[in-house]
Write a protein that binds this DNA or RNA. Structure first.
Lengths: 243, 243
DNA sequence: GTTGGTCAAGTGGTCTGACCACTTCGCCGC
DNA sequence: GCGGCGAAGTGGTCAGACCACTTGACCAAC
């Protein structure tokens, strides 16, 4: 068994997670008020600064509305939460949320091709060589986890070449949600990252500076696994509907 | 002159913004270490908890790496920052960053049609009526700011109907960046939100449950303004290249 | 009755100073 | 050279205090 890094959870982290769970699971609905910082500190058995830090972090994520002198109220996270909340939503209570996972797959299928097209438009001279090297590495290994890492690097290069901050940040957010579960997802993604050929075609299109071909090639890289996983998740989603 | 709400900036807010600016402007490069919390508190003339709160918020945004007992180092925000950083990047030092604005436009043009297609697939019975009501309101006013608000509501409904959390959160993040500048952008967006007819076509396609028509209609709503603004920004970007 | 003022209670905002837990790194003895 | 020790410096946490603000009840003046 591979040794795991020791997880060190600070007190504010713990508080953050607990309050977040209350909010996300709907225990405290939007518009309701949270207990006061002092009260929370007392109940949780921690100091007020610790509570405060956690609440401020939640406020920054637009999950709380903290008003000086007034009460702290819960906001509707569905309406206000940004993409950075994705990791917390994707894996809740230790298991993957099927609806969220489906949504992630849909999003990357929608966005990936557009990013590839932009990369084809704007990619510099060296891009082709970098991508090729990356695909070579992907093709050279048999390990699905390693393949995923290389696929991620591949897309990282593509996103860089697209030269669009918003896509860059979207990619960062998605990766932040994806990476922690990378090992667990290895079997699910094996189908996709095993197709080195598809990545080669995409690389060629991008290198050639042909946006529309690149868009289609990217679709061909992403669609098969997306489709099969989405239907698998749809089945799972039925099961999960115990909420 | 319309009365403005009083802005009340807390000490940690102030610290957060200052440190963020240092990081985003590259004054402190990725990998470099920040002064210690005590030192920062002293230099900024505030208490350590205030500094701490700001730094923790930055760490949550993946902009800093805070290690117990060790130094606090700056991470490469280009590689790690999530979409929630968008507002801070879009308007820096009080003025709009052209490259970021261009990127926002590109992203919404890439994503909007896909969301519309999903909405057409999944939209319920009442969706059409809601969208129509929204477009009616949009068509009924002459004020460009109001029109934008209605357009935003329109897309809000579409995103809801698409029933995909990731797109929902992307939309939330984009809106959070967009709304503060809504008034300033009114002239730029007037062209788009003035085309009530295009929104009607899109509404019809979504109501009809026809994904591909909806995709094309959404493209037709978004593309004209996107194209003209992108070229305007390209010219501006030349000017801004004094960095 | 409505308006506006006052005041107390409760909340978040901030500070101080202390101590704990951890990392770093140089010194020391082997 | 190498392992271990320990001081110094860093972030983590706490307690308690006080300030600033909102809220709502109460009351006076119109």
């Amino acid at each position: 068994m591979p040794l795991q890094p020791v997880v060190r959870r600070s007190v504010p982290d713990e508080v953050f997670d607990q309050v977040l769970a209350e909010v996300v699971d709907g225990e405290i609905g939007a518009g309701e008020t949270l207990p006061s910082e002092r009260r929370l500190a007392e109940v949780l058995g921690v100091s007020r600064p610790a509570v405060r830090e956690a609440l401020q972090r939640m406020a920054q994520t637009r999950l709380l509305d903290v008003r000086h002198g007034g009460a702290t109220t819960v906001r509707d996270f569905r309406r206000y939460a940004g993409l950075d909340l994705l990791p917390q939503l994707l894996v809740r209570k230790g298991s993957l949320d099927a609806a969220v996972a489906r949504s992630v797959l849909e999003a990357r299928l929608a966005i990936g091709p557009s990013v590839a097209a932009l990369a084809a438009e704007r990619g510099g001279e060296t891009l082709g060589a970098l991508l090729t090297a990356c695909v070579d590495e992907l093709a050279a290994t048999d390990d699905d986890v390693e393949r995923q890492v290389h696929a991620l690097t591949f897309w990282d290069l593509v996103v860089d070449a697209a030269d669009s901050v918003v896509f860059r940040m979207m990619f960062n957010s998605l990766r932040a949600a994806y990476e922690p579960a990378l090992e667990a997802l290895a079997p699910a993604m094996a189908e996709e990252v095993g197709q080195a050929g598809a990545y080669r075609v995409l690389t060629a299109a991008i290198s050639a500076g042909d946006p529309e071909t690149a868009r289609a090639a990217a679709d061909r890289v992403l669609r098969p696994a997306t489709d099969s996983l989405v239907s698998a998740l749809a089945a799972l989603e039925q099961t999960q509907e115990q909420r």
